[in-house]
């Protein structure tokens, strides 16, 4: 991501009250993560120290500091999903993808992440793939979804 692109994003959003999260979201939407160059640059523009910006990036689960897979697959680990067997789904996902939380598949297609509640608690277990949410996901359905992702790319 070029310096100009980052500066353009900061300039477009810096008039907002409390602009840092909108800026980080915009950079991540474009790049997939927050490049380390961006941290200092944002700080300079917003009159914050590099440490302050880094502190914010590292505080929130959503912000990444390195590129992940093309698709982010999140499995809900919260109580409602636990009550209908999400733990088995977690184990199945990790074993079938050969990934632990936060890891990306060798083909660069899938990053596996935990998530705590997708608000779909009446039709658990829930899975989110990018911006789509899937309900009542068992192991077989999970495999279907993964096959679909790989086919689409």
């Amino acid at each position: 991501m070029s310096t100009e692109t980052i500066e353009a994003i900061v300039d477009r959003l810096s008039h907002k009250e409390g602009p840092l999260l909108p800026i980080l979201h915009a950079i991540q939407a474009q790049q997939g993560f927050i490049p380390s160059d961006a941290v200092g640059l944002i700080g300079k523009k917003l009159n914050l120290s590099r440490a302050e910006v880094h502190g914010v990036v590292s505080f929130y689960h959503d912000f990444k500091t390195e590129s992940g897979g093309v698709n982010t697959v999140q499995i809900c680990r919260a109580e409602a999903c636990q009550s209908v067997g999400s733990e088995l789904l977690e184990e199945h996902a990790k074993a079938s993808l050969k990934l632990d939380w936060g890891e990306t598949s060798d083909d660069g297609q899938i990053t596996l992440e935990p998530v705590y509640c997708l608000g779909n608690c009446a039709c658990s277990p829930s899975v989110r793939i990018n911006d789509d949410i899937y309900a009542k996901v068992d192991a077989a359905r999970f495999d279907e979804l993964v096959t679909q992702i790989r086919k689409n790319n």
């Binding site: 009250e17 840092l20 999260l21 909108p22 979201h25 917003l46 914010v56 689960h61 959503d62």
Partner: peptide, 23 residues
């Protein structure tokens, strides 16, 4: 304004800090 995956930001003072662009 979009949060960034932190449960604690449902607590009102954390939420305000987050809205201000802080941890």
């Amino acid at each position: 304004r979009l949060g960034a995956g932190a449960y604690i930001c449902g607590e009102e003072t954390s939420l305000l800090n987050s809205l201000e662009g802080k941890r």
